[in-house]
Design a protein around this nucleic acid. Structure first.
Lengths: 278, 278
DNA sequence: ATGCCTTACGTTATACGTAATTATT
DNA sequence: AATAATTACGTATAACGTAAGGCAT
């Protein structure tokens, strides 16, 4: 049987017009290509070129062979691509969450349970998470909504409560607790990758300016050096800046959240050993 | 890139269940096959088997690879077949005729004009011949109907006149000429591959029994040894039996035929040098 | 004179077979 | 003990590159 190798060479000759030029691009010598094509013709029992002593041009059979070669190479490449994609997908666990905090603990735990797999995680909106769980984009999702159908396992994973951290000199620093509304109008530091938190804060503090910061370290630096209020949670815990700060709990229901972890019952065997933090 | 070779080996492993068995049928050693498959997996960057130390079984990717391998091999075989078929067809001239006699002279003549081509000929009905000329099943057809469209060349090729050969003792042996109807009711020897002649004779001699004979030599033998009437033509000429026989011409219009040779104008260059016998 | 393909020939690299190893039934 | 797969190693074959030749533009 002929080989894919030779079909690629055939296509290269078409692309690069002459045998010499094609050989150059294929990184083989011109005679090697010449003979390889001769072997292909022998194998196919058909002449593919008009040999004008000085020049190779595809004859009728050659053109037909090119069509086939294209189709076969296409299919072969599709084979490789699809196999690699499928096997990669099978070896990675995708986690989607509405907030970053649960991912911090869940990712290493899942990774420990399945050391051979790579874990991929991202923050998304509730609706996209639920959709992603259904169509297997995510194997695990984390939301604050325990609702689920019969094919889904729901676990009460952890609770996260929002605090505001204030410099001791801040007028509200002496309070035992606050509502987001109390902070409305104040500029406040905000980590940008907080997921659903941001929408809630913006809704309750329409007059505030949120100073967004991507980098966690930079955020902490700002918290330490500036007099601006900032958010923290029971999970983000005591930051290095906490010594100079007062942490005041926020009482709004929406910012004291239980995170539910959901996965398909089909994946129960994979994930049954995940332990809730609560 | 992987090679077709390896895909065939993959399919062989599926077919023959074990690597050892497959290697046997592929006429290579077991280790050679083992490594070849390992190379395939390396190339695809995917594991295709569950290795149970003692047994190879296809995993999910392996099964998917098998599907692709099947499709690719199928396409590759189709490529080879179709190329060979097309090139063969391009190198053979097909002649169709309603009667055998013109073929006897035309075939060697065409063969001499195109020594590189192989000539194939067959007897067919008028309608199939005309259709075959249109769709290029035949490059040349021979019929008794000169009608043709504008893309067709028609040549008055030869005439064939039917005779009946009778033993001298036969009651009709003294006649100068006969009509087929005169022979109606008599058993008569008939060469079976005569094409359109047979239909005419049967129509004009509904009460006769036709003693069909495939083999030309056998037919002549019968003509010589039996007292049965038989047919002959100006082209079949004087057979070895003619000495003992009387040849009486038949006067029916339908059995004194002009054969027309037809080919497409597109093939004029190929066939213009064919010379009529007349 | 240069570009392009083929043939010839010595060399290399890849894939092979033999033998040994491990594991399973 | 027999079957099956992998690993190790020396070998052979098939494809390669270099060199040379022929034939065009």
């Amino acid at each position: 049987m002929f080989e894919l190798n030779q079909l690629e060479q055939l296509l290269a000759i078409e692309k690069y017009k002459t045998l010499s030029n094609a050989a150059e691009h294929l990184n083989i010598s011109q005679p090697a290509l010449s003979r390889s094509i001769q072997r292909l013709e022998e194998e196919l029992e058909v002449t593919l070129f008009k040999r004008q002593k000085n020049r190779l041009t595809f004859n009728e059979d050659g053109i037909s062979a090119l069509e086939y070669a294209r189709r076969i190479m296409e299919l072969s490449n599709e084979m490789k691509d699809s196999l690699i994609t499928a096997s990669k997908a099978r070896r990675t666990i995708s986690i989607g969450s509405i907030a970053p905090a649960p991912i911090w603990t869940l990712t290493p735990e899942v990774s420990k349970l399945h050391p051979e797999m790579s874990i991929q995680s991202e923050i998304e909106t509730h609706d996209k998470l639920e959709k992603g769980l259904k169509d297997d984009t995510y194997q695990i999702i984390i939301t604050n909504d325990p609702a689920a159908d019969n094919d889904t396992v729901v676990i009460d994973y952890c609770e996260e409560d929002l605090y505001v951290t204030l410099p001791p000199a801040h007028p509200l620093a002496g309070r035992d607790s606050l509502y987001l509304a109390d902070l409305n109008g104040q500029s406040i530091l905000q980590y940008s990758k907080v997921g659903f938190w941001l929408d809630i804060c913006k809704a309750k503090m329409p007059d505030s300016m949120f100073i967004m910061q991507d980098e966690f370290d930079t955020l902490n630096e700002l918290r330490r050096t500036s007099a601006l209020p900032a958010f923290a949670t029971n999970i983000t815990g005591s930051t290095p800046s906490s010594e100079h700060r007062v942490m005041v709990p926020l009482l709004d229901d929406e910012v004291n959240v239980i995170f539910y972890l959901k996965y398909k019952k089909a994946n129960r065997k994979m994930f049954k050993d995940i332990s809730p933090l609560t």
